[in-house]
Design a protein around this nucleic acid. Structure first.
Length: 537
RNA sequence: GCCCCCGUAGCUCAGUAGGAUAGAGCGACUGAUUCCUAAUCAGUAGGUCACGUGUUCGAAUCACGUCGGGGGUACCA
């Protein structure tokens, strides 16, 4: 028995009851009420369906409540409240059974098959290999990695991918820039000036540099990519696949895109350039595919790349983009539409900017000029745990104020430590219990757990699967931080009020199981975020 | 100009598929440690959910408009 299944059971039962009354398509959605007195779940179906049933909401609700089957280990009671809400109150036995499951098995609890094995590809970071990763890339790495983990837990076949722009104009410029540094001549216009290139320039062979700018650029790009891979690795973010732009060219995929678009009469020539009629598909203006100098713009391989994702059998392509790429996502949407792909296949998400703050002031950053805080410096300063947690604290679409002073603090102001401390505290409790000769026993009688603090804690625990479901619906992981902070709070409150390891052995044993359950969820939640769950702090 | 994001307590923000009396943390003030870690807990104060109109049984949430803040807007990627 799991939370998921009781939700489903309530939904099924209500749907059947509604249909019995003659409501043809009842919209039964359960929600978790904000108010504590409103039960574990509530449902507004009586208000929604009253008209169709020819009844007033309150009466319909009364009838549904009266007909709903209750049980001693599930829904204990159904109450009607307000304009016609149905509030479902679960029995203590239900909570006690569920706790047993959580405390004994970390992995299956909160897992679900709601994704039905659908294949989703999550592309993120995908920063050009022309310099160090910035903090928006770090934010995207945190978000993408956590999304993939949560989606897998919820029954999706989720894959992560990094798209490497390893050719084109920028690579040429990169080569020219390094060559200029090496030759001590002027760096070309729009070239790369960063300090990091000086170190690279000394590591690259003369022969490679002399070859030509493209070869030199590719060499440098490979080195920079390796540095970034290593950093992402330190950050705990790996990718299932690194997809290079150059591989598309090896199979002439960009040319194929041009042919497809031409055959479908979606292009036209103007002043020696080839345009895609993007404005007919929702873009602001038509977009250049092939420049007057004969080269493709980035759009062409990008389209080829997304067609490739489709060919590889993915149902949905989630792409996390930086705030400076949102124009690009609109063009891509237009291209997908023009080529007849399903509307919801390409799902771009703009990861909004990060404002770093220190001493109450904003720390400015700029990639090209090589000043400001880069991802590696941030990690060095605040640590991986704080960085990953902080990056997940706001919704993806919100600008994020990242207070580096708070992230570094080892105090209650810092939510990372607040959550981690709850986990460490529980471990200390187990150590104390062990020293008193009390062992964790999952099968101990949990019926003894009945104080308000204990039940609150149990209620909060049951919301974990629901939270993961909400993350999937929103394709946004920030709810996880909110939830874990709340669970930690609920635990600290319980801890302050009630002693776990006390004189009554049976009570102590039951409370140990409760603690074990909390620790399991904290650990699993932190793990999904790539944040450590320390046993001692 | 056009596009995207944001506007909720002094500050940073939650508010889940439109639900019931809008919530946390920080800061401020008051208190708690014979007892498993005080990296903790309790209490007090603090609100025209930017503004307007609409949609409906019901709007912080949806639509349209206005104002304010931020970002973007290449034949670069």
């Amino acid at each position: 028995m799991s939370v998921r299944s009781i939700e489903d059971r309530i939904k099924d039962e209500l749907t059947a009851l509604c249909m019995g009354i003659g409501i043809s398509d009842p919209q039964v959605l359960l929600e978790i009420p904000r108010q504590k007195g409103h039960g574990e779940y509530s449902c507004n179906v009586a208000m929604r369906s009253a008209k169709q049933a020819g009844m007033i909401p309150r009466d319909l609700a009364d009838q549904l409540a009266a007909d709903f089957p209750t049980s001693s280990d599930g829904v204990k009671a159904v109450e009607v409240a307000g304009p016609g809400f149905l509030n479902f109150i679960l029995s203590k036995v239900y909570f006690h059974n569920l706790l047993k499951e959580i405390a004994s098995d970390t992995l299956s609890f909160a897992s679900s098959d709601e994704g039905h094995g659908k294949r989703w590809i999550f592309e993120f970071v995908s920063a050009n290999p022309t310099g160090p990763l910035n903090v928006v890339s770090a934010r995207a790495a945190s978000i993408g990695d956590t999304l993939v983990k949560v989606f897998r837990k919820r029954g999706y076949d989720a894959r992560s991918e990094y798209y490497v722009n390893d050719r084109g104009n920028q690579i040429k410029l990169l080569g020219a820039s390094v060559r200029a540094i090496f030759d001590k001549t002027e760096i070309p216009e729009n070239g790369y000036h960063g300090e990091y290139l000086k170190g690279i320039a000394t590591q690259i062979s003369d022969a490679d540099l002399q070859e030509n700018n493209v070869v030199a650029g590719q060499k440098v790009a490979t080195m920079l990519l390796d540095i970034n891979k290593e950093l992402l690795d330190v950050f705990g973010v790996g990718f299932n696949n690194w997809f290079t732009e150059s591989s598309l060219y090896k199979e002439s995929k960009p040319e194929d895109v041009i042919n497809m678009l031409t055959q479908s009469e979606l292009v036209y020539e103007k002043s020696d350039a080839l345009f895609f009629k993007a404005s007919e598909y929702g873009d602001n203006e038509d977009r250049v595919l092939r420049k007057s100098d004969g080269d493709f713009t980035y759009i062409v391989p990008d389209i080829a790349y997304h067609l490739d994702k489709r060919e590889r059998g993915f149902d949905k392509a989630v792409t996390l983009l930086g705030p400076d790429h949102h124009g690009q996502s609109i063009s891509m949407k237009a291209a997908m539409k023009a080529l007849g792909l399903p509307d919801d296949f390409y799902h771009p998400i703009i990861v909004q900017q990060v404002n770093l703050k220190r001493d109450g002031k904003e720390v400015k950053m700029s990639k090209r000029a090589g000043v400001g805080i880069m991802m590696d410096e941030l990690i060095e300063e605040v640590g991986v745990d704080a960085a990953r947690f902080f990056f997940l604290m706001r919704s993806i679409s919100s600008h994020l104020d990242f207070d580096m002073d708070v992230a570094k603090q080892h105090t209650d102001e810092n939510p990372v430590y607040y959550v981690q401390y709850a986990h460490a505290r529980i471990n200390q409790i187990f150590k104390m219990a062990e020293s008193r000769g009390i062992e964790l026993d999952i099968d101990t009688d949990l019926g003894i757990l009945s104080t308000e603090e204990e039940l609150d804690l149990l209620r909060t625990m049951t919301r974990f699967p629901w939270t993961l479901g909400a993350i999937v619906r929103a394709i946004d992981p920030h709810l996880l931080t909110t939830y874990l902070i709340e669970l930690a709070r609920s635990f600290h409150y319980f801890y302050a009020k009630q002693r776990v390891v006390g004189d009554e052995v049976e009570l102590s044993k039951a409370r140990l199981v409760l603690c074990k359950g909390v620790a399991n969820i904290l650990k699993e939640g932190l793990n999904l975020m790539g944040v450590s769950a320390p046993e001692v702090m």
